[in-house]
Design a binder for these strands. Structure first.
Length: 477
RNA sequence: GGCGGCGUGGCCAAGUGGCUAAGGCAGAGGUCUGCAAAAUCUCUAUUCAGCGGUUCGAAUCCGCUCGCCGCCUCCA
């Protein structure tokens, strides 16, 4: 039975969707104004496994993720600038070019991390009409007010504001040492619609004049449009808990009159060498940069060795030990597949079913991927033992199927490499095989110096030879 | 200042009331091997930041202290 830690109640709860077996899951997506970084990796890998595991548990899941291509201001005083606009000005291009460029980069990097694409990736700019409709309803209901072409949500109409993040709306309302920005009744009131001044490039007509939507509207609108008024799971980074998700709750529940989200899931943050990663500290690392040193699967494995709700520190030491550990996993599966080929069925005799059950028990407990990985390593040991001993074909096929179902299917790791990739093309393969044969002759003649020299030379080229009872095998490092 | 979280072996990291505190990396030793590599076996925390308390029993619950981190402005 799946239990999920619900940020709203601060407890693990048994997961029950509104309309089983259907599950609606909405996850806050990226603002596409810059390259994806380490934080995106942790967040979207975490939710990818949640998505995969829900499906593996028999649910029919609709996974919706937004692409924020408008609407995030830098300042709070109404004078702030949209990040995308700022970037567009710097790069001297249309805002939509910025959004689309970084959206492509986002998907490119997520694909490398083997994150499944959401069922719906919806862009904020494609839902301006729905946002305007929502604002109209909020005004009708008295939850929002217009002021000079701006529309604000009136926080005093939603006393529950703060229930997700443990904040008190009275404190927020009374914290008025800061003078409310132009036309706001309370400084904590947040914008639903902003007037577009002269040079603002992204603008749409509305009943309140030309403008653009506020920060938090898109998630309310798109989750309700594609999932429903009460969605099962809403996810995002912990940093979105306040104010973003509080505002979503206020808007949505004020309009519908019932619970917006049943299970709130927040992933914790990432640090780099123990420090917050930020551009101003100069320690900002994009995924593209990270992938030049660490394979995307190493990164994915590393992230899954931790828990989504724990903070995670990216350091060279941690990443490279993850690489070594993951290598052991990959080698075992590669040897397995050299022997048995494609995975068989996914029903297992008791001996192997036990591993599957243990894996599911771990993931059922608030997606304990770290525990799941220990099961994989137990299977590695079994695999190597069987390969070195009985070579029982049935067992090998069950092991192969388990790696496929649990490791690849649910954790989203990639074990298989094509022969071309692992052997660097046929010419390379032919040449190496030639050298291996020459070395065999040297070994047969007990010419150890020659044999070792060939091995050492190949090693320096990144080709590793291993002598086994069945002959010599080789692989690229 | 307000809100929230974390502190487990050399490093990373599960475990959140009760069998001998998972697993990965690193390290030591053994087996295998012409030697290596790989694999495998054994060993490496009487102890879970510290101090009190609750309990028959706590790493796990409560309080305090120390240290670290996040959010409170856009951020996954």
């Amino acid at each position: 039975m799946l239990t999920i830690y619900n940020t709203m109640t601060r407890k693990k709860e048994v997961f029950t969707p509104v309309h089983p077996p259907f599950v609606g899951m909405y996850v806050c997506g990226p603002t596409v104004y810059d390259d994806p970084h380490l934080g995106h990796a942790k967040s979207y890998i975490s939710f990818d496994v949640i998505y995969r595991f829900l499906k593996a548990s028999g649910f029919t899941v609709r996974y919706v993720q937004n692409i924020t291509d408008v609407g995030h201001l830098l300042g709070d005083d109404g004078e702030g600038e949209d990040r995308i606009l700022k970037k567009a000005r710097v790069e001297q291009v249309e805002p939509v070019e910025i959004a689309q460029k970084y959206e492509r980069h986002f998907f490119r990097d997520m694909d490398r991390l083997n994150c499944l694409r959401p069922d719906i990736s919806s862009r904020a700019t494609g839902h301006i009409l729905e946002m305007i409709e929502l604002i109209k309803k909020l005004i009708e209901k008295g939850n929002a007010y217009e002021q000079d072409g701006n529309v604000y949500f009136d926080l005093s109409t939603f006393p529950e504001y703060g229930k997700l993040s443990g904040r008190n709306v009275d404190d927020l309302l009374s914290g008025t040492r800061v003078k409310p920005a132009e036309g706001k009744r309370h400084s904590a009131d947040f914008a639903l619609w902003k007037r577009a001044d002269g040079n603002h490039l992204m603008r749409w007509p509305s009943p309140w004049g030309t403008g653009f939507p506020g920060w938090h509207l898109e998630c309310s609108v798109m989750s309700m449009k594609y999932i429903g008024e009460t969605i099962d799971i809403h996810g995002g980074g912990l940093d979105n808990q306040f104010p973003h998700h509080e505002c979503e709750i206020a808007q949505s529940e004020s309009v519908t009159g019932h619970t917006f989200v049943n299970y709130w899931i927040h992933n914790n943050m990432v640090t780099l060498d123990g420090q917050k990663m930020s551009k101003s500290l100069g320690n900002h690392v994009t995924l593209e940069e990270l992938f030049s040193t660490y394979d995307p699967m190493t990164v994915r494995f590393f992230v899954l060795q931790g828990h989504y709700r724990s903070p995670q520190d990216f350091s060279d030491e941690a990443l490279s030990s993850a690489r070594t550990g993951y290598g052991r996993l990959v080698r075992a599966v590669a040897k397995l597949r050299d022997t048995v080929g494609e995975p068989a069925s996914e029903t297992y005799p008791d001996r192997w079913e036990e591993y599957r059950k243990r894996f599911f028990d771990f993931l059922d407990d608030d997606f304990n991927t770290s525990g799941g990985i220990t099961v994989l390593f137990d299977l590695v040991r079994e695999t190597n033992t069987v390969l070195a001993g009985s070579k029982n074909r049935d067992d090998l096929q069950y092991l192969n199927a388990l790696f496929h179902e649990l490791g690849e299917g649910i954790l989203g790791l990639v074990f298989a490499s094509t022969p071309e990739a692992s052997q660097g093309g046929t010419l390379t393969a032919d040449l190496v095989n030639l050298l291996v044969r020459m070395r065999q002759e040297a070994k047969a003649g007990k010419n150890w110096a020659e044999a070792d020299a060939i091995r050492d030379h190949l090693k320096s080229l990144g080709i590793v030879l291993e002598d086994t009872r069945d002959g010599t095998s080789w692989s690229l490092e």
